[in-house]
Simulated assay, not measured.
Amino acid sequence: MLTLGQRFWKNKTAVICGLVLIIICMGAVFAPVLAPKDITQMDNAHRMQGSGDGYLLGTDQFGRDLLSRIIYGARTSLTVGICSVAISAFFGTMLGLLSGYFGRWIDTIIMRTMDILFAFPEILLALAIVAALGPGTYKTILAIGIVNIPVFTRTVRGAVLSVKNLEYVESARAIGQKTSRILFLEIFPNIQAPLLVQASIAISGAILTESALSFLGLGVQPPNPSWGGMIAESRRYMELAPGMIIWPCLAMTLTILAFNLFGDALRDLLDPKHRSR
């Protein structure tokens, strides 16, 4: 039987997407070192120009370096994506554990509340929350985190239902272990696989939602660069400087695609049916 590491290195999709995500994350972390220019530095003599004159990807309508702003935009998008998913995963896991383990009226209350949240389209619910709280990076993180809680709650609840009556859980109950110990030391370690897969896929959705909010002017606020904000600013100048919209779109597409494919590969790697392959 192959180990998880051996199966990972045999899965080309997981390896390639993992390397792409590592490069993107490293670029975001070391943005101050990698960015060739200050993201707020304006060069009126080279506004909306293409590649050249010290600007690898060209400049925007204010003469700011597009490459530097895209690198810092990666930091913004990944920060929002990871932090919002962390919020969703934490509260969704807690609610899913309670709902799946206790059932009855607790399950009914929690799941009907999640159904109400599910009834709203994700972007509309995020818009409503941000409109109520006001625009800003931290408020965007909170809004996206709240929107994604039902997905994690359902994922964890389904996993709990599949394991809560297995022998090792019944044995823990029989010897009188506390409910909290059963939940967090017996059940939770055995439901982490679907949780990890859902988290990796949810990050791509969170990045897309953040970009949509920033595009509408309700997400990350200027002068902080955001891929969605850059796309919104560049739509007026698409014919004059197409690179202004092409490069942030490519960066966002590559990141979202890498997270989605990595999540699919991770699901296959953690699936017991594939462990003998």
Rank of each mutant, 00 (worst) to 15 (best):
K164P: 03
L97A: 02
S226R: 10
G136V: 04
L166Y: 07
R154S: 04
I39M: 14
I246K: 07
I110Y: 09
S180C: 11
L19N: 05
L133D: 03
I141A: 09
Y55D: 05
T153A: 14
D60G: 09
E186C: 11
A159Q: 03
A258R: 05
E233W: 03
F91Q: 05
S204I: 04
I256L: 14
N11V: 06
S200P: 04
I182M: 10
M111Q: 15
G5T: 06
F259G: 11
K164E: 02
K12H: 08
N11P: 06
G243I: 00
D38C: 04
A28Y: 13
G54P: 09
S204E: 02
A232F: 02
Y72I: 00
L133K: 02
V156C: 09
F91W: 11
G145I: 01
Q61A: 11
V33D: 07
P225H: 10
V20Y: 04
G96T: 00
M244K: 01
A206W: 00
S88Y: 03
L78D: 09
A35Y: 02
S68F: 02
V156G: 09
P223M: 07
S180V: 13
D107C: 09
I22R: 01
G58M: 04
Q198K: 13
G5W: 04
I175F: 12
L185T: 08
I110H: 10
S214M: 12
I129W: 10
A45L: 12
F62K: 12
I23N: 06
P150S: 11
M42E: 14
I256D: 10
L250I: 15
T113I: 06
E210C: 08
Q41E: 15
A159S: 14
R64K: 14
V20F: 10
T155N: 15
C17M: 13
L98C: 11
L208H: 00
L56P: 01
F118M: 15
L195D: 01
Y168L: 03
G243H: 14
T137R: 13
M42I: 12
M238T: 13
R112P: 13
A202R: 11
G243E: 01
G27Y: 08
M48N: 12
V156L: 09
G92N: 08
R157D: 02
I246N: 03
G58R: 00
L66W: 00
L196W: 06
L127T: 02
M1L: 12
V151P: 00
G18K: 11
D115W: 03
G96Y: 00
A31H: 12
E239R: 13
L2C: 06
A89D: 01
M42L: 11
T179C: 09
F102R: 10
L183S: 00
R157F: 02
Q61E: 13
D65S: 13
I22Y: 09
G134C: 08
T108Y: 13
G54M: 12
M26Q: 07
F91E: 04
T13S: 15
W247D: 01
G176C: 02
V15K: 14
M111S: 15
P121L: 05
Y101N: 08
S180Q: 11
D264M: 05
I39C: 07
L261H: 06
L66G: 01
T179F: 05
T155G: 05
G243F: 04
A89F: 10
A31C: 10
